[in-house]
Write a protein that binds this DNA or RNA. Sequence first.
DNA 1: TTAGGGTTAG
Length: 626
Amino acid sequence: MLSTVTCLHLPPLNHNTDSHTPQTLTATHLLHSFASPSELKQLHAHLIKTNSPLTSLPPSRIAFVCSLNSSFSYARKLFQHLETPETEAWNSCLKAFAEGNDPIDAILLFNQLQSFCVSPDSFTLSFVLKACTRLLDVSKGRGIHGYVEKLGFQSNLFLMNMILNLYTLCGGERDARLVFDKMPQRDVVTWNIMITQLVKRGEIKGAYDLFSQTPGRSVRSWTLMISGFVQCGKPKEAIGLFLEMEEAGVKPNEVTVVAVLAACADLGDLDLGRRIHEYSNQSGFSRNVRVSNTLIEMYVKCGCLEDACKVFDGMKERTVVSWSAMIAGLAMHGQAEEALRLFSEMIEKGMDPNDVTFVGLLHACSHIGFVDQGREFFTSMTNDYGIVPKIEHYGCMVDLLSRAGLLQEAHEFIINMPIKPNSVVWGALLGGCKVHKNIELAEEATKHLSELDPLNDGYYVVLSNIYAEAQRWEDTARVRKLMRERGVKKTPGWSSITLDGVVYEFVAGDETHPQDQEIVQMWEKLVEKMKLKGYVPNTSVVLLDIEEGQKEKFLYRHSEKLALVFGLINTLPGTPIRILKNLRVCEDCHAAFKLISAIVDREIVVRDRNRFHCFKDGSCSCKDYW
DNA sequence: TTAGGGTTAG
């Protein structure tokens, strides 16, 4: 027995509603809406009695009603009097089931039709395949594949693509490859399905190889590959491919725009981001919620919070993603109060928050030290909104407590977590131990981290720096030795700045830059002015066992300082400077940048590995809590 | 009737 379907998009009847007698009105009404085989039988009898043509009976409705009640023989008897082919009638029904809430009904109906020897055509098979795909039912799919071959449809490109897609989605990689290799013809969809599979498995090189071989690449092929690069953390390649796509004269659509904007966000490529924004406005893509959501993300991650707000404010329609993106963006920029205010507004407007919204809120609280507020959100998300906290929420809570110096509480929180803490959770505790100089708990955190994420250099570096700050040079050396033994290398710090679309990268201590002399001179002038304002080089951040003078030299050639001075030299006065750093910004650079922002009267925006620092008029948007 | 898209913790 098939389950009841309430919403079926079956074709409406064409009939003239005027000039009906009461008697025919009833019949006409029934003609629209008969809901059971018995009503159909009444109608049938009425048509015979009034000598009306049976052809006025809607075949798709007959198929639907009879399929619900297993009255197949009766339906078939009626079909014999109708002009529409029987298979077509059943197909419309299969389509509705396959696309409805219970795709299994399409498969059940198909099985019934088989037993009644109704001959399937390519459409029949396509709808059943659609049902199998939606159910991810590969064994049923295999059966249908068998039918397709038995009925001689193996050269039907459409069906073969559907089968291929089904296998790729259900993990039948070998089946998929077999089908692909055997296909007598392939079209661009065939190639795109194969590329999608490789992208999903993270085999980006294989995906790109197939993409390169794809004949007649469509917008979708390009978009697929661009978003594949973004997904596997290769935004540069994504942008490179996008530029190639433009060169090839292929017009980007909304989906392409979303993928490229995400790449711009990852790279901090504001110039391209703005160009895509303009293009989206011209093409009308900006009205698309997903495009606007990604524009918010792009502006947030490029350090232009105001532009992100403008996009958000201008949106006619907003989803929970739009609100969450804006809240997370404000959190990243240290605007916790504004993030919390936006959350209240969201609730007032009747928008339900989701788990991601709460990650943003907790993030906002931890980055400004709103401990109580954060605790309240954490309980409220479950009690008021029925959201079960995920590992990310626990990570935020540990970060919130650890930053605030509540290290013991953070540790207990981890021990009592109902899910297994991951490396991020222990990493958050370790971060707090660094700030609040707790060696004992740092060692405890590191113990877990060396099991959970033994190849991550960051944790070793933090621990060795904690020892160095405490002048425990032997322990520092021990950690560095452990790193060598395990083959873990410290990620070199680098900073980049983009001028006129060109990305300039600096690594710490770099002296090879063509403008190096200018940079040194400019820096010396700045240091003089900074010292007048009370700047004392914080050599304690140079965690090397070397003499003071040497330490100062190291300090002055931190990558973010080089990038900043280079930016000051090569831009007009008043231009904001945007810098991207792969690691966290160092304490001395932070103090220096605050002073420099006042001295040169510039806004300096630094995006480090987890947040933004916006330096202006001598202070930073993070309010020195980071 | 088949293929691609948005927010998230160290």
